[in-house]
Amino acid sequence: MQTASTNIGERMGRSQELSDSKRGPVIGGHLGNKSIRDISWLLNIPRSTVSGIITKWKQLGTTATQPPSGRPRHMTGRGQRMLKRTVRRSHQLSAESIAKDLQTWCGLQISPTTVA
């Protein structure tokens, strides 16, 4: 008999994502009328994770990882530091020239109005 506490090494950490090979059996157990508690015990997965997978499957029809919502962060820390450094060194540069420098350095499309 296997208990949930004996396989601590197999348990997920907070930052890890559950693999597709474990998401399928969760849905299979749900379709087989198993309780969340039973599925959690059988697969050695936290009940909250099992519940989240089932909820996601009911709402979206899939268990695949979805892209994050919201506006993407284009300019990361390196780009911001480069912009601040460029503006600090020469106050007389135009927004167009700073935007061109950033585009060549970061490879991002940045408009002069964003820089200004």
Results as ranks from 00 to 15, higher is better:
Leu83Val: 05
Ile110His: 00
Val115Asp: 00
Ser15Tyr: 12
Gly61Tyr: 13
Lys84Glu: 10
Glu17Leu: 03
Thr3Glu: 15
Thr3Gly: 15
Arg71Ser: 07
Ser111Ile: 07
Ala4Ser: 12
Ala99Asn: 05
Ser97Val: 15
Gln109Ile: 05
Trp41Phe: 02
His30Tyr: 15
Thr76His: 10
Arg81Lys: 13
Pro46Met: 03
Trp41Met: 04
Ser40Ile: 08
Gly24Met: 05
Ile98Leu: 01
Pro112Tyr: 12
Asn44Val: 08
Val26Ala: 06
Lys100Pro: 00
Thr55Met: 06
Arg71Gly: 06
Thr63Ile: 09
Val115Met: 03
Ile53Arg: 01
Asn44Gln: 14
Ile98Pro: 01
His74Tyr: 15
Leu43Thr: 07
Gly29Tyr: 05
Met1Ile: 12
Ser94Lys: 12
Val115Ile: 08
Met1Thr: 12
Thr114Pro: 10
Lys22Ile: 08
Ser35Ile: 07
Arg73Pro: 02
Arg78Gln: 07
His91Leu: 06
Thr3Ala: 07
Thr104His: 04
Leu83Ser: 10
Arg23Gly: 02
Val50Ile: 14
Gln66Asp: 04
Ser111Tyr: 07
Val50Ser: 09
Ile45Thr: 08
Gly13Tyr: 14
Leu31Gly: 01
Cys106Pro: 02
Met1Cys: 11
Met1Glu: 12
Ser111His: 09
Val115Cys: 05
Ser90Leu: 09
Ser51Val: 09
Ser90Gln: 11
Trp57Lys: 03
Pro72Thr: 10
Gly13Trp: 12
Trp41Asn: 07
Thr3Cys: 08
Leu42Asn: 01
Ala4Phe: 14
Gly9Phe: 07
Gln80His: 11
Leu60Asp: 00
Thr55Ser: 14
Arg78Leu: 03
Leu60Asn: 05
Ser94Pro: 04
Met75Asp: 01
Ile110Asp: 00
Ser90Trp: 06
Thr3Trp: 07
Asp38Tyr: 01
Ile27Asn: 05
Gln103Pro: 11
Leu93Ala: 08
Met75Val: 14
Lys58Glu: 12
Cys106Arg: 13
Pro46Arg: 14
Arg23Asp: 00
Asn33Ser: 11
Gln66Val: 15
Met75Cys: 12
Ala116Gln: 14
